[in-house]
């Protein structure tokens, strides 16, 4: 699980740096923007996964 989360963060960050070079061309602001986008992206992905796991454990498997 930890490995997958780290991989998600790494891949999300690398992709965000390249993709958001379209809207920010200065290096430091680009790295910060990519960081913010990676956090949002990772929360969407892992948050949905965590929520569904919680629902499964609390109601479906109980």
């Amino acid at each position: 699980m930890i490995f997958r989360l780290l991989l998600l963060l790494l891949v999300g960050y690398l992709g965000s740096v390249a993709f958001y070079s379209r809207v920010e061309s200065e290096p430091m602001p680009l790295l910060r923007l990519a960081g913010k986008k990676t956090v949002v992206l990772s929360l969407w992905v892992s948050g949905a996964f965590g929520l569904m796991t919680l629902i499964e454990n609390l109601w479906i498997n109980s």
Binding site: V11, L14, G15, V17, A18, S21, S25, P27
Partner: peptide
């Protein structure tokens, strides 16, 4: 002429490719 951005973009894409 955007050499730092070039290194960031190129490095990120090549890293994704290598992964």
């Amino acid at each position: 002429g955007k050499k730092q951005t070039a290194l960031l973009v190129g490095g990120s894409l090549l890293a994704l490719w290598a992964l």
